[in-house]
Design a protein around this nucleic acid. Structure first.
Lengths: 189, 189
DNA sequence: ACTATACGAACTAAGCAGAAGTTGTAAAGT
DNA sequence: ACTTTACAACTTCTGCTTAGTTCGTATAGT
């Protein structure tokens, strides 16, 4: 066991530092892929030294898991927040949640955030299954505001399938949102 | 120009021969991919000699285009036939059309028919765009039986997006049909 | 209307040695 | 709580040669 790599941050400042590193690390992984993104490059992007990275994270794998895990948690939390804002109409909230979960990662700039996650399920473990399941749960619960549970399940599943399909059909976030809005209007009108 | 490779079949028997060759050729291409499927192997599967293949088709590319083109045409024609059978309820016909267009190519046996098409758009030319566009047209026209044109367009697009999404989510034809049936029931009920 | 055989040109795969890059750790410094 | 520098072990890339495939065509045969 190395003396470094304190996985539990001891104070708020250190936690913020970790978060900033995870943020830029995810972008670097997304840009070059897990394998071709070197720890050197990740460290440079985070403006720390490479051994400094190993002080914060045990290994490249652990760093990758933490970066993806954090992004997923944040998107899930943001989606939950958006859906909970019952002041706004349900369709609007649903579109907001999908935008945060999927739309956000479309377009030339960050197209491969999804890709780098999908292409390394072995490194991420159960995350690749639990996170989408949690998102489905959020959508189902939101839809259940206006329909019984059984129907909400089917509407949520169809919405998610449509979202995945649209993601494969379009190139831009705008086009995604347009098509998704149509699906939402038809399915929960 | 070679004296062989008569692209326009001169009689019904020769056309049937070509069709049988195209059928097995598509399966061979699907199983090994375009590059790794050799003309030798395609010929063997079609029970003719390799020079015999060159008598029927100008080149490997032409054979591939013909094989994919024929499959697409047949699926499109079958979908059109199914949708035209107005004796059956619309949802049932829609599911049948989607099954022929997409469901048919799911599962361990022929999983890569779609793959070999998607991975060689350069060899297929505009086919990869026109065929899906024609399928969308068929679905839109069918949905227009029960809704105005503007809504039919949106319903058809959402149905197709959902179909693409489900295809990426499931492993078997049965699971695909189950999820698609739910989408159809919700969108054209 | 094909089959069998053969052949050149081009491409692909396999092996392999050496260079370069990467990971994770250590040590010393501030 | 880091940085700089350094190092061993490992993997990946590069360039090269050789060997093997594969495409497309030709020719002779039935």
């Amino acid at each position: 066991m190395a003396p470094a790599a304190s996985n539990a941050p001891s104070n708020a400042a250190e936690a913020g530092r970790r978060d900033a590193v995870l943020e830029s690390a995810l972008l670097t992984f997304a840009r070059h892929g897990y394998r071709k993104a070197s720890m050197e490059e990740v460290a440079r992007a985070a403006r720390i030294s490479r051994p400094g990275l190993y002080f914060l994270f045990e290994s490249k794998e652990a760093l990758f898991r933490a970066a993806v895990g954090r992004a997923l948690e944040e998107d899930l939390a943001a989606a939950e927040r958006i859906l909970a804002d019952t002041g706004r109409p349900l369709p609007e909230r649903l579109i907001g949640a999908f935008d945060r979960w999927t739309g956000r990662y479309l377009g030339p700039l960050s197209r491969d955030v999804t890709g780098v996650i999908e292409q390394n399920p072995d490194l991420l473990g159960e995350l690749t299954e639990t996170a989408p399941a949690r998102f489905e749960r959020l959508i189902t619960d939101a839809v259940a505001e206006t329909a019984d549970h059984a129907k909400a399940v089917r509407v949520a599943q169809t919405l998610i399938s449509a979202s995945i399909g649209v993601k494969h059909q379009v190139e831009t976030r705008e086009a995604y949102l347009e098509r998704l809005a149509a699906a939402v209007a038809l399915l929960v009108g």
